[in-house]
C-alpha cells in the first residue's frame, strides 16, 4: 500500500510539475530594427543620334516624369538612407549635357544632378549620390514626386558617329534602406 501511495504521489508531483520561467525582457522588442535595403531601377532614357539630329534647338529632351514610388506613404515615412546611382553612356558624335532634377508635388526642384559628357569615344560616366546621414538630406527623396530630365545637345545637328547604333543612354537605380520595424 505504501508503495502505491508513493507511486501516486510521484505521478501527481510530476504531472503537476512546478513550472519555471527564466526572466524574459519583452521590452527588447522596442530595440528590434528590421531595416532591409531594397534595390530597383529608376529611370532609363534612350535617345538615338538620328533623333537628336532631327530636333532643332539644343534641348532634345525636356520632360517631367511622374514618379510616385517615393511618394507612397509607407515608403516616404520609413526611408532611412540610400544611394542613387547614375550611368550615362554617349556613343554619339556630340558632347551632351544632361540634367536630372527631383521635384516635389508642387513642381519645385529639390535636388539637381548635372552630367556633361564628351562626344564619343568617351568612357561611361558613373556617379553615386548618397542620401541620409553623411549625404544629402533624405527628405529630398521622401518628398520627390516627379523627375525632370533635360538633355542638351552641345554639338551640331548633322554629324553622325562612326560607332554602331549611336545613342545617348541614361541609366539609374537606387538602393534604399527602409525601416519595416
Amino acid at each position: 500500500m505504501k508503495r502505491n501511495v508513493l507511486i501516486l504521489l510521484t505521478a501527481l508531483l510530476l504531472t503537476g510539475f512546478p513550472s519555471c520561467v527564466e526572466r524574459q525582457d519583452f521590452d527588447q522588442y522596442d530595440a528590434l530594427a528590421v531595416t532591409p535595403t531594397v534595390e530597383a531601377s529608376l529611370l532609363y532614357i534612350e535617345a538615338p543620334e538620328r533623333v537628336i539630329n532631327q530636333i532643332s534647338g539644343t534641348d532634345f529632351v525636356q520632360q517631367i516624369f511622374n514618379f510616385d514610388a517615393f511618394a507612397e506613404d509607407f515608403v516616404s515615412e520609413n526611408l532611412l538612407d540610400g544611394v542613387v546611382r547614375y550611368q550615362v553612356e554617349n556613343t554619339t558624335s556630340k558632347p551632351l549635357e544632361l540634367t536630372f532634377e527631383l521635384l516635389d508635388e508642387g513642381g519645385n526642384t529639390l535636388d539637381t544632378e548635372a552630367f556633361s559628357i564628351d562626344a564619343a569615344p568617351t568612357p561611361l560616366l558613373v556617379r553615386e549620390i548618397a542620401y541620409g546621414p553623411g549625404g544629402r538630406s533624405i527628405d529630398i527623396i521622401r518628398n520627390t514626386s516627379s523627375i525632370r530630365v533635360t538633355a542638351r545637345n552641345l554639338g551640331d545637328n548633322t554629324s553622325t558617329s562612326s560607332l554602331p547604333d549611336p545613342m545617348v543612354v541614361l541609366r539609374s537605380s537606387a538602393q534604399f534602406r527602409i525601416r519595416l520595424k
Binding site: 531601377s41 529608376l42 529611370l43 532614357i45 520632360q63 514618379f67
Partner: peptide
C-alpha cells in the same frame, strides 16, 4: 524602372510613364 525610349516616347507629351 520607367523606360523612356525616343522617339516613341515623345508621341504623347502627357503620357504618365509611372
Amino acid at each position: 524602372g520607367v523606360e523612356v525610349i525616343l522617339p516613341d516616347a515623345l508621341a504623347d507629351p502627357n503620357r504618365d510613364f509611372w
